[in-house]
Design a protein around this nucleic acid. Sequence first.
DNA 1: TATGAATGAGGATTCATTCAT
DNA 2: CATGAATGAATCCTCATTCAT
Lengths: 222, 222, 222, 222
Amino acid sequence: MSKHNLLDAMIAQAKLSKKQTNKQQKIVETAIKMFAEKGYANTSTSEIAKAAQVAEGTIFRHYGTKDNLLLSVILPFLKESLPTIAEEVFTEVMSKNVVCFEDFLRALLKNRIAFIKENKEIFQIVIKEFLYNENLRNELLPYFSETIGHRLTKVIETYKQRGELVDIPNNIILRLMFTFIGGYFVSRFVLLPEISLMDEEAEIDTAIHFIMNGIKKQSQGG
Amino acid sequence: MSKHNLLDAMIAQAKLSKKQTNKQQKIVETAIKMFAEKGYANTSTSEIAKAAQVAEGTIFRHYGTKDNLLLSVILPFLKESLPTIAEEVFTEVMSKNVVCFEDFLRALLKNRIAFIKENKEIFQIVIKEFLYNENLRNELLPYFSETIGHRLTKVIETYKQRGELVDIPNNIILRLMFTFIGGYFVSRFVLLPEISLMDEEAEIDTAIHFIMNGIKKQSQGG
Amino acid sequence: MSKHNLLDAMIAQAKLSKKQTNKQQKIVETAIKMFAEKGYANTSTSEIAKAAQVAEGTIFRHYGTKDNLLLSVILPFLKESLPTIAEEVFTEVMSKNVVCFEDFLRALLKNRIAFIKENKEIFQIVIKEFLYNENLRNELLPYFSETIGHRLTKVIETYKQRGELVDIPNNIILRLMFTFIGGYFVSRFVLLPEISLMDEEAEIDTAIHFIMNGIKKQSQGG
Amino acid sequence: MSKHNLLDAMIAQAKLSKKQTNKQQKIVETAIKMFAEKGYANTSTSEIAKAAQVAEGTIFRHYGTKDNLLLSVILPFLKESLPTIAEEVFTEVMSKNVVCFEDFLRALLKNRIAFIKENKEIFQIVIKEFLYNENLRNELLPYFSETIGHRLTKVIETYKQRGELVDIPNNIILRLMFTFIGGYFVSRFVLLPEISLMDEEAEIDTAIHFIMNGIKKQSQGG
DNA sequence: TATGAATGAGGATTCATTCAT
DNA sequence: CATGAATGAATCCTCATTCAT
C-alpha cells in the first residue's frame, strides 16, 4: 500500500477508470477471482497474467504495481460501500415502508446482502486483506466509522427517542450491531460460503429477532 | 500446510516439545510477534532470524520448514482451545455458581477472554491465517464444531429445557452466539486491540445482555 | 527428473524449441560445457548464469527448473540417438556397400563416432548422468533396448543366417557388442578424450577386427 | 578431493585405520551404501548420520571432511585393487594350472569378479565417482596403467611369444581387453546389477570366447 | 569419545518490475 | 496498446563444518 490517502486514491481511480480495455477487464476479473481465492500475498502477477491470457507486462502497463491492481479491485467496491452508503443506501432503505426499527434493519440487511452477493469475491478480498494488511486497515477504519457510523447513529437516535430501543449509549448499540452483523456477513460470505441452514428470508428474520430480542425466552405476558 | 492431519501434527508436536533451546524460544517468540503483526505470508524467515538474533539456518534446523514453524506457534494454542475445551473449560465454568444461562455465559466469556489475553498475538495469528489460509481453515473448522459445538449444544439444551432460552433449534442458537462472540473477540483483540469503550466487567455485561435480550426496549411490565 | 515419461518430455521439448533467444542459446551452451566438465550435481545455476553472462532468473524464466535445463540439453541429443537411429542411421548405413557384417559394423561405427564427435560434451553429460542418476537410467534403458536393440538384432540375425556370425543367441551377441562398443565410446570420449594411440581409421579397423576375431592368433591355415 | 597425492592418502589412511570404533564402522558402512545408491554429491552428511544412528559431529570428528570420508571408503578398496594386484592377484592367478592365455584370463576374471562381488557397492562408488569427479579420475588413472597395466603387459608379452596371441602391439591388446572387461564389469555390477542372462560360469566362458575369438564364425576346417 | 546445537555461505526458485520491440 | 524477454533482489531451504558440553 503505497498510496496513503484512500480518498485521493479513489479520486485518481475514478479518473482512470474511464476507458477500460478488454484486456484490462480480463485482468481485473481474474485478479478478483484469484485474490479472493488465495489472498493477495499468495497470488503472483504471472499467475494472473497467465489466467487472464495476457502478457505480464500488460498488467504493469495499466496498473503500475501489484499494490495498485489490488486498489483498482477494491476501490470501486469501497466507493459503493462507504461514502455513498450515507446517501444512496439510506435513502433507498428509508423510502420503503419503514415504520419501526425492525423494518429498518430488515431493509438495510436485505440491501447490503444483495450488494455483497453481487460482489462476493471482492468482499472476501476486502475482509481478508483488511485483517492481513495493516495499512489497509488503518486507512479503511476511519471511513467506516465516519460514514456508516454517523448515519446509523442518527437512525438509532431516532428510534431510541421513539422508545423502541434499549436505553444505552448509541455508540454501544452501534458496536453491538456491527459486531453481530459484521460477524454474520463474514461467516456467511467468507468462512462458510456454501453452507446455509435455512432460506434467506428466514435467516434474516432470525438475525433480526436475535438483534432485537436476544435468545432469552420472553416472559409469557410480555 | 503440508501436515494434513491436525491431530497428528498436535501429537507430533507434543513429542517434539521436550527440550527447547534458548534459541528456539527466541525464534518462536519472535515469529509470534512478527506473524501477528504482518501475517505469515508477509514475514520472511530471514527477518525472523535477524530479529531473533539467530542464524537463518537455525530456524530450519529446529522447524524444518516455515510452515512447520507456523504450526509450532499455533498448535500449542489450539491444543488448549479445542479438544480440551470440552473438558477443562467446561468443568471449570460449571464448577462456579452457575445457576442460570447468563451465569454460564459470563463464566465462559471471562475464562476465554483471560485465555486470549494471555495469548493475544497467537490469537491474532490464528484468526488472520484462518481467513487467509484455506488449508488451515479446512483443518480447523471440523475440530471447532465437533468439540466446542457439541459441548455448547448440550449446555444450550439443558437451559432450554429449563425454559430459559428461546424455542428455536439448538444449532441456530449456537450459530447466533458464535457469530456474536466470535465477532466480539475478533473486533476486540484483532481489529481494535487498543480501543475499549468501557471497563471489561461492564463490557462483558453489555455483551451478555445483548445476547440474552437484544437491543429492543423491554416492555415495562415485562 | 520430474518428467517421468521421456517420450512426453521429448514431444514437449520439440514444441518448445521454436524460437530460441540469444540468451537461451548462451545458457544452453554454457550449461553443456559445465555439466560435461563438472557434472550436473556439481554445477550451480548461479555459476551457469555468471558464465553465460545472464541473470540467474533468466535461466528459470526459460527452463523452469535446473532439471529441466538438463533435459533441454540432453533430449535433442537423445532424439537423434534413440528413436530415429532405428530409421535414419540404419538406412544410411545400409545404403553403403554393405556386403558383409564387417562392412556393416564399419559403417555403423563411423556414423556414430561422427555423431558423438559433433556432440562430445553432451555425450559426456549423458554418460555421466546415466551412471549417476538412477531415474534417468531407468528412463533411458528401455528406449535403448527397444529401439537400437531391436534393429541390431535383426541385422545380426540376417548375417547369422548367412553364416557369418558365431552360433550363439542373438541377445548374447548383442550384449557382447554393446559392451565393447559402449566401453570403447566411453573410454574414447569420456575417460581419455585427449589420448589416441593411432589414427581413427586404424583404430576403427582394430576395433572391428577385435569384435570379429578376438585376440587369438588365427591358425595359419585358417 | 583435497588430498592430491593418492599414495600419501593411502599411507595416511593405513595408519588411521588401526582402531576403528563401532561408530566409525557404522558410519563407513552406511556411507558406502548411500554413496553407492545415490552418488557422493547427492548424499548429505546429515543423511548418513541419521541412517548410521550417529551424531553428525561424530562423522567430522573421525573423518574431518566429507571428502575424506569418501576417501576412507574408497582407499581400502583401491589398495587391494591397484598396487597389490601386481603381486597377490597375479601370484594367485599364476599359481593355478595356467597353461594357456585362456586359462590365465579365466583365472583373472574369476578372481576379480569374486573381489568385486564382495565389494559391489564400493565398486559402484568408484566407477560413478571416477566418471563424475575429475580430480579422482586424474589421480587414479596413472596408478591403473602403472600397476595393472605393467603386469598385464608382461603376461601378454609372454603368451604372445608363445604364439597364442595376435600380432599387434601389446598396449593395443591391453586396451582392447580393458575396454571389454571394464565394460563388462560396469554393465554387470553397476548398470544392470540384477539382470543375468546365464549362470556365471557360462557368462565367463562367453566373455573369454569373445575376447579370444570375436563373433565371427570360424571356418570349419580351422 | 560423542554429541547435537549453531552457523552462514550457497542452492534452487519466485516474483514484481522494466524495457525494447 | 501490448508483448514477453530480462532482471536481480529476495525467498525458503540445504549443507558441510565448528564448537561448547
